[in-house]
Structure formats: structure tokens, C-alpha cells
């Protein structure tokens, strides 16, 4: 019995313990974040205020993208909006890529056919 200390690799916690601790830390952080965000949720009165405003003013779209009329009110956009700067003009507003055009654009549709 030499009394030598164990090789370094055998000291310390087991790998499975470390993995479990790391997993627990991530899950605990997640649980805290979820708890904090859920407890900060706006109360029912705030949601009702927004719904009442929509009903009172007959609003049709959210005010998320205000840079162009067809991104501000996509549900009321017309066929002309897509090419407002010219018949062959390309989409140039950045938020135009975040909102799909309405499926039922009025007064026609865009088609290509071979004669």
C-alpha cells in the first residue's frame, strides 16, 4: 500500500452525474424563464381592451409592418400594390418577405401561358 492518490481521471464526479447536473441546470433555467414570462402575461383586461378597440374601429390588420400600405394592411391590399412602382417592379420593401399576399387578390390574377 503505497498511499498514492488515485489517478486524476478517477477523481471527481461521474460523467453521468455531470451530464445530469448540466441537464438539470438547463431545465431549471427554462422553468424559471417560463414561470417569469407566464406570470408577466398581460391580464385579461388588456386583451379585452385590444379586442374592443378592433371591434370599435373595425380594424382589419395588425400594425406590425408600417413601411408600405400592402404590408400594413395586407388583407385589404389590391393587385396594384404588388407592382405599384411599375409593371415589372420587384418587391423591395424588406417586410414584404414576411407577409404572404392574400390568396384572393381582386380584379384578376397573375398567370403565364404558352400560346
Amino acid at each position: 500500500m503505497t498511499g498514492r492518490p488515485l489517478p486524476r481521471r478517477l477523481d471527481g464526479p461521474r460523467g453521468s452525474t455531470l451530464a445530469a447536473a448540466a441537464l438539470a441546470a438547463v431545465l431549471a433555467t427554462g422553468a424559471v424563464l417560463v414561470g417569469v414570462t407566464l406570470s408577466e402575461t398581460h391580464p385579461a383586461a388588456d386583451c379585452a381592451a385590444a379586442r374592443d378597440l378592433v371591434a370599435a374601429l373595425a380594424l382589419s390588420d395588425v400594425a406590425l409592418f408600417t413601411e408600405a400600405r400592402y404590408t400594413r394592411n395586407p388583407s385589404l391590399a389590391d393587385l396594384h400594390s404588388a407592382f405599384q412602382d411599375g409593371p415589372g417592379s420587384l418587391e423591395h420593401f424588406p417586410t414584404g418577405s414576411l407577409v404572404m399576399p392574400p390568396r384572393d387578390l381582386p380584379a384578376g390574377r397573375l398567370e403565364a401561358r404558352e400560346e
Binding site: 386583451c47 374592443d52 378592433v54 371591434a55 390588420d61 389590391d78 393587385l79 396594384h80 381582386p106 380584379a107
Partner: peptide
């Protein structure tokens, strides 16, 4: 958006000319 806009107008009528509002 879906929750809020469920209170929106049932029908909105827009005049159109040349594919434009």
C-alpha cells in the same frame, strides 16, 4: 393576431378600378 382580428368587421367593401383600390 387571430384572437384580436376575430372582432374585426364581418365584411369590408372596397371600390376597385383598374385593379386598384
Amino acid at each position: 393576431a387571430g384572437t384580436l382580428l376575430a372582432e374585426g368587421p364581418e365584411i369590408t367593401a372596397q371600390a376597385m378600378v383598374m385593379g386598384r383600390h
